[in-house]
Design a protein around this nucleic acid. Structure first.
Lengths: 336, 336
DNA sequence: TTCGCCCGTCGAAGCGCTTCGACGTCACCT
DNA sequence: AGGTGACGTCGAAGCGCTTCGACGGGCGAA
């Protein structure tokens, strides 16, 4: 293994000079820097992560807690995760993968052992048991999602409440008077998953405000459940003509189910969704949707963390990304 | 931060004794061990990961390369990943998440910096560019998947060739004479992804052996592509009565498409799949399938790695899990 | 009783890096 | 011409842990 002293010898300088030349924490002459870099290249030098972490008290590792649990849609989660990894690498950091099951103990472990020097937590619940821990931990953290009480924490997410509102407003503007929300699986609500709850709030509030009749239908992603919900919706009195879908895996099957029941989308029924754009655009009938900007959220979560690690005092506590609705083929003015 | 000297003082012993008491690498009296453990608990001691890695030249971190690229089904990948994380934790290791894009450079980096002390690589291609690197690296690695030439490497996976054969044999036994394989998206084959190629080999070989007419259809997971493939299959002369699906997201839509075209499953058409059991069982018509045992593969990959890290000399180079076919509702004897 | 050995413990060295204080040199100002 | 910084570099200390060799005391064997 080639170490910093090897590089120093080869470049004809002291180890500390090598360190400074590489970190830029002290001025080093252009000539010396060049020699050091040449030596690094020639020897294939890579600083030892452990040694660096010990001496510098920075591991350059971020811990990411991903929810791999019932009811959450894995491809969406992985979009967030992938963008976190990419952004972290851009800041010369690596990402440690923690699962939800590790829970608070896992967070405490990576923090206390100095394995990671910052944490990113996904799948936040309204009253999340991890919040006290995150507040007291000496390491900075960022939540992707908003708990009920977020003071003292740094949170970022799409404004899901506004997203629910935007969908309803869009349907209302098209003349729809009866709307329904096809939501995430029941267990997601039972757990009080923040983003799911917020969509319901926004959906209901906007419907009330606009004087619409509205209903909410949590919905598992089981086979045939699309058809079941579709039938249930059509039996309602009055029957909805506008539907908001907040359940990625159900989106396509649901539209199929409607058509199977003799309803045309958007002819008889307008559908909007809250999901990543790629999903909405890839459905057979491209769906008007509010984008869940996973890539942006992941990247900005990392930026926030880097700012906190850098000691910035002005890191915003709350970052709510405004919803952006893209009209596609699944919504149309109400007929008759 | 509480360190080993704090624990030592509290327990009335030397730091080295604490270390030995915790690692068990030297005999320590029961009484002393008890006092050390008490001190650890009372002070909430956690060894510093960096210091430990530096002194012990073991980081207790595994690097996992996950493929988040076109054509691969994310939920399946994450099953592997989740089981790797769980198994790693059971061995007191953590998991560093690398994406495919980081490529060879990423592997080399985590190995050379001693960030990780072992590697797990997924999504292996028949002639994978990473193989030379993995062979020369000083750190042990395990591949989930088999390249064409695997000598000098440790690989584990479902025996996909046998899986393809088992599916065909099952259909042949039911009397089907014309079979089709609905495979992964074209780009997966273009990349020479090992498991996809192996299924094709097994499928074709078994069909030839049994004297069946067979055809192979790579198939993207686009909207409406299920219907397109279904139509294409039915237009063939002779038309297949047995179908093997090796494409998770297409499984349910494909069956829907067949029924939409007037074919009953399994009445007119038998369908088998190669996918995790949970997926096959969750389709509207539960599908006879060969299980992709993601949990087992992930766990055993970690076991193999631990054996190699432990210096075991007898770690098997190749572990091919035999296919296990479960009959469900989607296959029946050929009628007429 | 004495010798030798093993068990349990200790002290010290050292893993590879960062960082702090110090020092020499040179340019610039007065 | 001497004083004053700033610049560029060096040496040494130390991050928290593991591990090696050594050592004392107890025991069994001779």
């Amino acid at each position: 293994m080639v170490k910093i002293t090897d590089v120093a010898r080869r470049a004809g300088v002291s180890p500390s000079t090598v360190s400074y030349a590489l970190s830029g924490k002290r001025p080093i002459s252009a000539e010396t820097r060049r020699r050091v870099q040449a030596a690094v290249r020639e020897l294939g030098y890579r600083p030892h992560a452990g040694a660096r972490a010990l001496a510098g008290s920075r591991s350059n590792v971020l811990a990411l807690v991903v929810p791999l649990r019932a009811g959450i849609h894995v491809p969406v989660v992985m979009r967030f995760a992938a963008s976190v990894v990419t952004a972290a690498r851009a800041h010369d950091h690596d990402v440690l993968l923690l699962t939800q099951e590790e829970g608070e103990e896992g967070l405490r472990r990576v923090a206390d052992t100095a394995l990671a020097d910052a944490l990113i937590v996904m799948d936040v619940q309204l009253r999340d048991p991890r919040l006290p821990l995150l507040r007291e931990l000496d390491r900075p953290s960022v939540l992707i999602g908003f708990p009920r009480e977020s003071t003292g924490l740094t949170c970022i997410d799409l404004d899901f409440k506004a997203a629910g509102e935007v969908c309803v407003d869009h349907l209302a503007r098209l003349g729809h008077r009866v709307v329904a929300l096809v939501g995430s699986p029941p267990e997601v609500y039972v757990r009080q998953t923040a983003f799911a709850q917020r969509v319901v709030q926004g959906f209901t509030a906007a419907a009330d405000r606009a004087g619409l009749v509205s209903s909410v239908h949590p919905c598992a992603a089981a086979p045939g459940s699309a058809l079941a919900v579709a039938e249930r919706l059509l039996r309602e009195q009055p029957a909805p003509t506008g539907v908001v879908v907040h359940n990625e895996p159900l989106l396509e099957p649901l539209i199929d189910a409607f058509e199977q029941l003799g309803l045309r989308v958007p002819g008889d029924l307008s559908v909007t969704a809250i999901c990543p754009d790629e999903f909405a655009a890839a459905v057979r009938v491209p769906v008007t949707s509010v984008a869940v900007p996973a890539a942006e959220v992941g990247a900005r979560a990392v930026e926030l963390l880097m700012a906190k690690l850098g000691g910035a005092a002005d890191v915003p506590q709350a970052t709510l990304l405004p919803p952006r609705l893209t009209e596609r083929a699944s919504t149309a003015p109400r007929t008759a």
